[in-house]
Amino acid sequence: MEYVNTDMLNAVSLTFKLALVTSVLLLLIVMPLAWFLANWRHSAKSFVLSIFALPLVLPPTVLGFYLLIAFSPESALGAWWLDLFGSTLAFSFEGLVLGSLIYSLPFALQPLYSGFTQLNKGYLEVATSLGFSPLETFFRIVLPQCKAAVIVAFGLSFAHTVGEFGVVLMIGGNIPTETQVLSIALYEQVEALEYERAHVMSLGLLVFSFVALALLYRFDGNKRHSAVSQHRVDS
């Protein structure tokens, strides 16, 4: 039996394309959001954070079901998309991207929010005294100091998107080269009793997940060690 075929390679390519697009867009969207939340003082803050963290505990099929309804041509969003682009949002790559943005959002938000809240506010005071604008302060002071949080946010959202199943199945179905990502292709192989190919896909996802997490933990640990050492020197 041929363990790797064209359909499998297409699924791998589509999966990593989806993960890359989702992770880049998430960083652009979540960085200003996390910075705002880290500096926001309001009694409703815990409620707002709970809303953004909901995908962490909500069953993926539940979220996928409501997204499928929202993406259908009968909904306002789905009808607007159909009028604008001439294609449906459901069962399309664009729909997968939008669904992945929502499903993976907390995996990008949490590391950035944690990094921004732990930032030494003394750096901000120095930047203000030097006449930096808020935008200059964010790009020249905040982001370099929180580089580890940015990398962890990107890595976690990428790895999480690679492993999506319930949401992508509900809103994307199983269309080869269009919405058939690796987790869906794996499910299809199991249904067809093609266990050898299923083993290859599963092992590949297992190795990728382990390596990705090991690298992120190692990078984050090294960064924290450097930060502690620098703090001791400064003290």
Rank of each mutant, 00 (worst) to 15 (best):
residue 20 L to Y: 07
residue 87 S to N: 15
residue 234 D to R: 15
residue 15 T to W: 10
residue 16 F to W: 03
residue 17 K to F: 08
residue 145 Q to L: 02
residue 216 L to Y: 10
residue 235 S to L: 15
residue 199 H to G: 12
residue 4 V to K: 10
residue 173 G to W: 04
residue 71 F to L: 00
residue 38 A to D: 06
residue 185 A to N: 15
residue 143 L to Q: 04
residue 165 F to D: 01
residue 204 G to H: 03
residue 50 S to D: 08
residue 95 G to C: 03
residue 170 M to S: 04
residue 9 L to P: 10
residue 227 A to D: 10
residue 21 V to G: 05
residue 57 V to M: 06
residue 65 F to N: 05
residue 134 P to V: 03
residue 172 G to P: 06
residue 123 Y to D: 11
residue 152 V to I: 03
residue 8 M to K: 06
residue 159 A to P: 09
residue 143 L to T: 06
residue 50 S to N: 12
residue 131 G to H: 04
residue 121 K to R: 12
residue 184 I to K: 11
residue 28 L to D: 09
residue 60 P to E: 04
residue 182 L to N: 02
residue 142 V to Q: 05
residue 234 D to M: 15
residue 76 A to V: 13
residue 206 L to M: 12
residue 203 L to T: 12
residue 111 P to Y: 07
residue 170 M to N: 09
residue 192 A to I: 09
residue 122 G to L: 07
residue 54 L to M: 08
residue 47 F to R: 15
residue 134 P to I: 00
residue 140 R to A: 10
residue 209 S to M: 00
residue 123 Y to K: 08
residue 233 V to Q: 14
residue 26 L to A: 10
residue 28 L to M: 09
residue 122 G to H: 09
residue 209 S to P: 05
residue 200 V to W: 03
residue 201 M to F: 05
residue 33 L to H: 06
residue 21 V to M: 10
residue 22 T to D: 01
residue 203 L to Y: 07
residue 12 V to E: 08
residue 201 M to N: 01
residue 50 S to V: 08
residue 44 A to S: 14
residue 103 Y to C: 06
residue 101 L to Q: 10
residue 224 R to F: 02
residue 38 A to C: 07
residue 232 R to F: 11
residue 87 S to M: 13
residue 31 M to T: 14
residue 205 L to F: 06
residue 129 S to I: 07
residue 190 V to C: 00
residue 230 Q to R: 15
residue 136 E to H: 12
residue 36 F to H: 13
residue 228 V to K: 14
residue 18 L to F: 00
residue 127 A to R: 09
residue 235 S to V: 15
residue 111 P to Q: 06
residue 61 T to S: 09
residue 7 D to H: 13
residue 167 V to D: 04
residue 27 L to G: 00
residue 188 E to A: 14
residue 45 K to F: 04
residue 17 K to V: 13
residue 214 A to M: 13
residue 87 S to T: 14
residue 49 L to Y: 03
residue 201 M to C: 02
residue 171 I to W: 08
residue 93 F to R: 07
residue 192 A to Q: 13
residue 82 L to G: 05
residue 114 S to I: 15
residue 185 A to S: 13
residue 63 L to R: 11
residue 149 A to H: 09
residue 195 Y to L: 12
residue 170 M to G: 09
residue 198 A to G: 02
residue 224 R to T: 11
residue 44 A to E: 09
residue 212 A to L: 13
residue 148 A to P: 05
residue 139 F to A: 03
residue 132 F to L: 01
